[in-house]
Design a protein around this nucleic acid. Sequence first.
DNA 1: CGGAATCCCCGACGATACTG
DNA 2: CAGTATCGTCGGGGATTCCG
Lengths: 115, 115
Amino acid sequence: MKDQEKHIFYRDVQDALDLMRGRWRGAIMASLCGDPKRFLELKADLSPVTSRVLIKELRFLEQNKLITVKRSISAENSVLYAHTEHGSSCGPIILQLRDWAVKHRVIMLESIRGK
Amino acid sequence: MKDQEKHIFYRDVQDALDLMRGRWRGAIMASLCGDPKRFLELKADLSPVTSRVLIKELRFLEQNKLITVKRSISAENSVLYAHTEHGSSCGPIILQLRDWAVKHRVIMLESIRGK
DNA sequence: CGGAATCCCCGACGATACTG
DNA sequence: CAGTATCGTCGGGGATTCCG
């Protein structure tokens, strides 16, 4: 692998992680696996996230076409957040990463106890 | 899924992403797939990372038992960084995430061109 | 209910220089 | 070669308050 290719490769990895970056972004994507959710449902799920931060992350994900936003203009205020088709395809990957991290925690705990 | 379980779940997702968090951590893990590497090899691969930041991330990964550090006391200075067994098992996941992000970029570019 | 506005802190990250 | 030491910035993210 040439130097040029390497840097492209690592940049791609960085780009990938950027999409899931920060304290909440990945958790939001995980939370939207399954049914669409409303703003306060998300906020409750991810508590203790604040409105300000949550809306910022939602906007980011929307701009990156990972989620869609549906506003019901009728009657009471209601906004539904859902995965786009492509957004939902990262669900399984996040689950894998989570499983891996759980295994990792077990290993860490064993090494502490083993001492 | 109860509220309690939910929060555990999302916390696990956060923990997982934390291990790959920041500008370099994921790229370092990707870079160590395959052969072990020396400090300056890593630095060159990941350029333009600085020594200060690189060593900090390497120490983090070492403490979390995702990489090992082998110092050859003999002759010339030489330090080899390599995946632990468990560390290497996240390689495939990172690759998946990367592939997903590359697809994502294509979608984003299409939507811009399409406008 | 679903946000927007404001204020603020601190830790990640970079630049640069130096060392055993 | 493989780091340390020092300094500075910048923005992510929390707390709080207010709005249609």
